[in-house]
């Protein structure tokens, strides 16, 4: 049995606790023992993102401390994992020092299930047409899938999310238009430039026509798209991968 510490990003804790529970559920089904450090807060990404490096560094150090005793950390958010893994070093959190441990052992959920646990099936059923939302950080920073920039004939290396979805009973996967064009969230970008961001999200949603659900690995992108969809009153419903893998029926 593998011991896994759950990293629940600050906004997931506040806004989407159910995604965290779905993650717990999936990990337990996959045979993990899930631990939760109750005094975790934020990895510092939102601060790094606005250029508040001092604040980001403090939170990054705090984050590493909190998780230092765990070998494996898993999170249902690609962008937070990318921050821990790729950005802490440039904040001066020494990748060679003791803090390095949390860098090397933090995984995004899909990547953990495919690369580390090599799960074959989770026994989930989700009888719907779904399209994958490739979130940018998961895609380009963590390499969860080959980016479209590598060309239409890019070597079919792998796409962790699609691999997992294809094992879900009853699920039909729809190929979206411009599969990995950014949805327009971008953290503080959406706050500073809400209209440009909304316009990007609108195109993104339009690219998913034919799907009932859009499945992603980043709660932030999903919340952004859900906000736009709810206002427009139409379009596929954005949900997190963990919910599909947990087989939890949509509300």
């Amino acid at each position: 049995m593998r011991d896994v510490a759950l990293f629940v990003p600050c906004y997931v804790d506040q806004l989407s606790p159910q995604v965290a529970w779905d993650t717990v559920d999936v990990l337990e089904r996959a045979g993990c023992r899930v631990h939760y450090e109750a005094d975790q807060t934020c990895c510092g990404q939102p601060f790094l993102n606005t250029g508040a490096r001092r604040e980001a560094k403090r939170l990054a150090a705090r984050h590493c401390e909190r998780f230092a005793k765990h070998e494996t950390v898993v999170s249902p958010s690609g962008s937070c994992v990318a921050t821990v893994r790729n950005r802490f070093a440039e904040l001066g959190i020494d990748p060679q020092g003791p803090d390095a441990q949390c860098r090397t052992r933090t995984y995004e959920l899909a990547e953990f299930l495919v690369d580390e646990l090599r799960v074959e099936t989770l026994g989930a059923r989700f009888p719907h047409r779904v399209a994958v939302l490739q979130s940018c950080h998961g895609l380009r920073d963590l390499g969860l899938a080959p980016g479209s920039e590598q060309g239409p004939d890019a070597p079919e290396t792998r796409d962790a999310v699609s691999l997992l979805l294809d094992k879900v009973e009853g699920l039909e996967r729809v190929t979206p238009d411009r599969a990995d064009d950014c949805c327009g969230f971008g953290g503080t970008f959406a706050v500073k430039y809400p209209e440009v961001s909304a316009r990007m999200g609108k195109s993104r949603l339009a690219g998913f026509s034919g799907a009932e659900f859009v499945v992603g690995t980043d709660v932030s992108c999903l919340l952004h798209l859900e906000g736009l969809r709810a206002r427009a009153g139409k379009g596929p419903r954005p949900i997190h991968l963990a919910q599909v893998l947990a087989g939890r029926a949509p509300a």
Binding site: R140, E149, C182, G186, G187, F189, Y193
Partner: peptide
């Protein structure tokens, strides 16, 4: 700041 930092 005028970028979503998507990395494309």
């Amino acid at each position: 700041h005028a970028s979503s930092l998507c990395g494309s």
